[in-house]
């Protein structure tokens, strides 16, 4: 690997972005455990390289759609801690004024068209956004994030067909973390997920979703092609979620072993993998990486305190935004 200034800065940025997501999730989980967060939430921890590797290949006007496990996508596409935590706590300064919560964070200013609590529910939206880009003759690209479980939704095949017919600038990014809820992917997916995309004539790739540099390299390549009208593309990213399906899914040995979890955490952690690379290349020392972590942790703690003390929406907001004023 060649060391130049640009790469050095870029790699450190990848590291920081992934750390931000991990730290965000650790704090969100703690808010849940302390009974300070209403409802449930789905942790992205373990999958950071997917969102960061892909979103770092995008520019702000490119669009993404996200999922119920969406905090990572939001952060990677530029969201800030304060508004994120405020939304998780139902506060008016949150991204959706407290109306959406964890599963519905949308951040239009950064090109994030929103998380979705309907599995596969964003596939039409993402493909429509790509259609819009094509109609406008803009070279913006849309990335549709979804889990392996969502590949069971029929909608996916309807929109992939149209995307392929019309060469839409979209990348379907399947985050294969091995499970949909409490069921393994083998039990819910027949044949090969990649071949399904290929059946539509869509070029499809498999990549190690724990290797942020590999993800970013592939994504950058495909994004550039999609900008030139060579889309759509499909990527299957092999990854793992560290926590339960949601924060309340604590006793999970009946569907996956502690050993398996530890193996991923100890040997295939995306942040550790990049960290070791940075150290071995002399880009950053262990101490410097620790410093990054503690700086981000302090920022997150401040944001949590901010959100805990922030105001709830005024009750008059309950029927605001059902329709937009014309």
């Amino acid at each position: 690997m060649k060391k130049n200034k640009h790469n050095t800065e870029f790699y450190l940025r990848l590291y920081k972005q992934m750390t931000k997501i991990r730290v965000f999730e650790d704090n969100a989980n703690q808010l849940y455990l302390d009974a300070k967060m209403p409802g449930l939430t789905h942790m992205y921890s373990g999958e950071e390289a997917v969102a960061v590797g892909i979103c770092e290949a995008l520019r702000i006007s490119d669009k993404i759609t996200s999922t119920h496990r969406g905090h990572g996508h939001c952060m990677a596409k530029g969201a800030n801690f304060n508004q994120m935590f405020c939304e998780l706590l139902g506060k008016v300064e949150g991204y959706c004024r407290g109306k959406g919560g964890s599963m519905h964070i949308a951040d239009q200013a950064n090109g994030n068209l929103g998380a979705n609590a309907i599995v596969g529910g964003s596939m039409g939206i993402a493909t429509g956004s790509a259609l819009r880009a094509k109609l406008q003759k803009s070279d913006d690209v849309t990335v549709c994030f979804f889990g392996d479980g969502a590949t069971a939704q029929g909608l996916m095949y309807e929109v992939m067909n149209m995307a392929a017919l019309w060469q839409l600038p979209i990348i379907y990014a399947c985050e294969n973390n091995g499970y949909s809820e409490y069921t393994t992917t083998e039990e819910i997916a027949a044949g090969s997920i990649l071949e399904r995309a290929r059946a539509f004539g869509i070029e499809a790739f498999n990549v190690d979703g724990q290797d942020v540099i590999a993800v970013n390299k592939l994504a950058s390549d495909l994004v550039e092609k999609a900008r030139k009208g060579k889309g759509p593309f499909f990527i299957e990213l092999m990854t793992y979620r560290y926590h339960g399906h949601h924060v309340g899914d604590i006793n999970r040995t009946y569907y996956r072993s502690k050993k398996e979890e530890l193996d991923w955490k100890n040997n295939r952690d995306p942040i550790q993998i990049l960290g070791s690379f940075l150290e071995s290349e002399g880009i950053a020392s262990d101490a410097e990486l620790m410093e990054i972590h503690s700086t981000i942790s302090r920022e997150a703690k401040d944001a949590v305190d901010y959100a805990l003390n922030a105001a709830y929406p005024d009750t008059s907001e309950v029927d605001l935004h059902v329709f937009q004023e014309v």
Binding site: P38, G39, G90, K91, V92, C96, G98, K99, G100, G101, H104, Y312, P313, T315, E317, V318, D319, V322
Partner: peptide
């Protein structure tokens, strides 16, 4: 239920 999509924030949801 109030004729609004159900909001997340407890202070709003309880009104619906």
């Amino acid at each position: 239920a109030m004729d609004v999509p159900i909001p997340f924030s407890p202070v709003l949801e309880d009104l619906t």
